[in-house]
Write a protein that binds this DNA or RNA. Structure first.
Length: 552
RNA sequence: GCGCUCGUAGCUCAGUCCGGAUAGAGCGCAGCCCUGCGGAGGCUGAGGUCGUGGGUUCGAGUCCCACCGAGCGCGCCA
């Protein structure tokens, strides 16, 4: 990547200046290259001279000039200027930029890949909504975040596994089953109410109807008796079918759907508990079993096994992470959770430590919950009130691409409002179409060209010298830097902003430069440029899980 | 009460991690551009005490402190 190459050249220059005695031999601070906002400040800028000034006892301007004097030449570098108060402004060489078009075409669909991960294994777990209802809008955020992150990490050279934890063992699915059974009985004319704290949503009635279609009255127990186990299992299975469809609709596919219950049936739970005991982090008091998490950075101890003998959600999650780290051996695990789980973070970190796993290997990304609105009115996502705004409903209204682009555009920390009315009204104004339009426009140009020019493989990219042509190349080259920075920061919301910029660079070029013209040599060169831009746009969109249409 | 997160243009949000040059984008608003490859496009303009007050610094939207406001968390719930 040219950015790293330039950083290397600059620190080399300083070292050489020190060796030559032009700069004092002080420790050189880190100074990553910046992207200046103003084009006249070049493609990259370094503030190293300012950072070095106090240590070196020289003025930033002097230091910058000295550094330039000792800097090696590189074919990518067009010029290096010193600007007050001591910036080093680097401009890329136009001929080098033009030549990158061929490099992009060569990289093809892998353009933007970066060797950061080195094939290390990494797991991303996201959504993992309880199988007690369909995916709702609030989950949209976790899905866009987690899925995009997984895409980017794969592009950054990690071996990524996507996983959904199916909470099929807890009290919530029991309440779900009880509700389902009540609805099922109602279909056969029994006068029963859904349980207190149950799920009053309409979808439970459809689910009950489905059970009746599949099983007739065979699931009916004698009146007053609890539901047969099959109601629970079949209900959860059918609910997961719905959830799988909901997620597929927005392009989310998992490598593995992990059953929480399997932790108990295959002995993982017992093993993880034994492992904690061996480490000496387990105590018993008041009839319950506790993890001494307060010794490991949490504010307090937490219950693993209730006095009833039933494991807590915490114990379940420990067993699950025991499986992730110690059984399956992921080097790194990323969990994407809603901010309502924030209290769970320190204890899971403590649990990792208790398992002998460096807590650094567990990254938990919290995203702020979505406030759902219908106009000015706040819609409470309480399942008890039964008002669920499903993801499906919104996707059918505004489209999967717009939904994903919208959710991935917001930083995880931002507290966002989702106004369903506004989203519907403004779906045509969603910026995603601006980016997709650029892609479709290029497809149009390429098919227009195909009727006139046999092939442009022999196009000479050195003919690309127009300012807007080079600006487009510059923007394309930024993709790899972005993939790297997102893979490190785990903040994929940078992606849509980049995609907008890239599309803008293309549209600007399109306005100023005719691609297919009487000048065949230039036409071929520009067709190469445009084909490269198409790759870059498709990649940027693809990383976000958004389609790149040939026509709209 | 304590803790975490947030407060930037009319609206929705980037920029804060790692301080740097005149604070950006989309939408909305006012105006302009089609006798050539897709006008879901391009160009121009109006619009900002970066929540408030202190502090650190050559330099603060960015770091520190206090305060105000909002969301979330502080269970033998998940």
């Amino acid at each position: 990547m040219v950015k790293h190459e330039l950083e290397r050249l600059i620190s080399e220059a300083v070292r050489k200046a020190q060796a030559a005695g032009d700069l004092p031999a002080v420790a050189v601070p880190d100074a990553p290259l910046e992207r200046p906002q103003r084009p006249e400040h070049g493609d990259y800028a370094s503030s190293l001279a300012m950072r070095l000034a106090r240590l070196a006892g020289q003025s930033p301007m002097e230091i910058a000039k000295t550094a330039v004097k000792h800097m090696d030449l590189d074919e990518a570098v067009g010029s290096v200027d010193v600007a007050p108060p001591g910036f080093l402004n680097i401009r890329l060489s136009p001929s080098w930029l033009a030549a990158q078009v061929d490099a992009i075409l060569e990289a093809g669909e892998r353009f933007g890949d970066v060797p950061l991960g080195g094939g290390r294994s990494l797991q991303v777990e996201y959504v993992s909504a309880n199988p007690v209802g369909p995916i709702h809008v609030g989950n949209g955020r976790g899905l866009a975040l987690g899925d995009t992150l997984a895409n980017v990490l794969a592009a950054a050279g990690y071996q990524v596994q996507r996983e959904y934890l199916v909470n099929d063992a807890g009290t919530q699915t029991e309440t779900f089953a009880a509700t389902l059974y009540a609805r099922y009985q109602q279909l056969f004319g029994r006068e029963v109410e859904i349980p207190e704290g149950g799920y009053p949503g309409e979808y439970m009635i459809s689910l009950a109807q489905r059970l009746r279609e599949e099983k007739g009255d065979s699931l009916l127990a004698p009146p007053g008796e609890p539901y047969p186990p099959e109601v629970h299992d079949l209900g959860v299975t059918r609910m997961m079918d719905v959830i799988r469809d909901d997620l597929a609709m927005v392009g989310v596919h998992y490598d593995r759907w992990f059953s929480e219950r399997s932790l108990y049936s295959d002995g993982t739970y017992e093993k993880s508990l034994a492992h904690l005991r061996d480490g000496g982090f387990v105590t018993e008091r008041e009839g319950a079993v506790w993890l001494s998490s307060s010794e490991l950075g949490d504010e307090k101890d937490n219950v693993l096994v209730r006095s009833t003998g039933a494991p807590t959600y915490f114990a379940s999650d420990i067993a699950y992470h025991y499986d992730k780290f110690l059984v399956r051996g992921f080097q790194r695990v990323i969990d994407v959770w809603g901010a309502d789980h924030q209290g769970h973070v320190p204890r899971m970190k403590a649990a990792a430590a208790a398992l002998g796993v460096d807590p650094e290997r567990l990254t938990i990304i919290l995203y702020q919950l979505v406030t759902l609105k219908r106009g000015a009115e706040v819609v409470r996502l309480s399942k008890r009130a039964g008002e669920v705004v499903t993801l499906r409903e919104v996707v059918e209204e505004v489209g999967a691409d717009a939904v994903r682009f919208f959710f991935v555009s917001r930083a995880a920390d931002s507290h966002m409002d989702f106004d369903i009315e506004l989203a519907k009204r403004q779906s045509a104004e969603n910026p995603v179409y601006y980016v997709q339009y650029a892609h479709a426009r290029i497809a149009g140009i390429l098919s227009h060209a195909a009727e006139r020019i046999r092939s442009f493989e022999d196009g000479d990219v050195s003919l690309l010298t127009h300012e807007s042509e080079l600006a487009l190349v510059r923007k394309m080259l930024q993709l790899a830097e972005l993939v790297e920075s997102v893979a490190v920061s785990l903040e994929p919301h940078q992606l849509p902003y980049y995609a907008m910029d890239l599309a803008a660079a293309f549209h600007d070029f399109y306005e100023k430069c005719r691609v297919v013209s009487d000048d065949e040599a230039l036409s071929k060169a520009r067709l190469k440029l445009v084909a490269a831009a198409k790759l870059a746009l498709a990649r940027a969109l693809g990383l976000m899980g958004v389609s790149a249409p040939e026509r709209m």
